[in-house]
């Protein structure tokens, strides 16, 4: 019995979901990674992401199905490498399909298609999770943040304007956030308020306010995205 087998058996001994098992699984995977015994034929014929995808699946399975490891049938490393072989085959298939789909999409692009239509791929889920909207977003880098800027600028309910540093209504969230989004430095922003406010005060106010408004921003941007 080698080191890796011992670690696999140790992980099995602890109840599922226990901290002891989580630690043992971490130890096992760390030892496998360090052992240099992982083997995957054809690994270097594809980009590293393909092998990595297979390996992520393997680590998930090792953790989820550690109880299925049977020492009498195989060494731990054989068990893992066998899983890796099949997962790698799946990842290669997926990679090939993705390539084919992206070529297809370039052709389809001239047709009119719904922006949130999923990009089809032939993996088990049937969809890659990528939509045509994603592809547009990639070409228009700051669209979403332009929306955010407009939203704070318009301030339809007046909340950003009225949320300000105590005794300094001019130092309100709306003004500070818009300056920040214009890439102004804190020194420049402080100058806007005639340096009446300290750096510590304004940055702390800004941080807390951003966290305060986070759900509101997210709701707004989600709605915007939803409209396509």
């Amino acid at each position: 019995m080698d080191e890796l087998d011992k670690l696999a058996l140790e992980a099995q001994q602890h109840p599922a979901k226990s901290n002891a098992r989580k630690k043992a699984l971490t130890k096992l995977i760390m030892a496998i990674q360090a052992s240099g015994k992982l083997y995957c034929k054809g690994r270097y014929d594809y980009p590293p992401e393909v092998y990595n995808e297979a390996l992520q699946e393997v680590w998930l399975k090792v953790c989820e199905h550690i109880d299925r490891y049977d020492r009498s049938k195989a060494n731990a490393i054989t068990w893992v490498n066998d899983m890796l072989k099949w997962r790698f085959q799946d990842a290669v298939d997926k990679h090939r399909n993705r390539k084919r789909v992206s070529q297809d999409n370039q052709r389809k692009w001239v047709q009119t298609l719904s922006l949130d239509a999923p990009v089809k791929s032939s993996d088990s889920d049937g969809e890659s999770g990528e939509t045509f909207l994603d592809s547009i977003a990639q070409n228009q880098p700051s669209m979403l943040l332009q929306e955010l800027r407009d939203y704070i600028q318009e301030d339809p309910e007046g909340v950003f304007q009225h949320w300000h540093i105590i005794n300094h209504p001019e130092a309100n969230y709306r003004t500070i956030a818009l300056s920040y989004l214009e890439d102004k430095s804190w020194a420049e922003i402080l100058a806007v308020f005639d340096n009446q406010i300290t750096y510590g005060k304004i940055t702390s106010f800004f941080r807390h306010s951003c966290r305060h408004f986070a759900p509101q921003f997210q709701d707004y941007l989600d709605r915007k995205e939803g409209l396509g």
């Binding site: 630690k23 971490t26 130890k27 995977i29 760390m30 990674q33 980009p47 590293p48 992401e49 393909v50 092998y51 990595n52 995808e53 390996l55 992520q56 990679h95 993705r98």
Partner: peptide
Amino acid sequence: LTFTVPLTA
């Protein structure tokens, strides 16, 4: 203990 995550596409 450390843990290395292979990054996917």
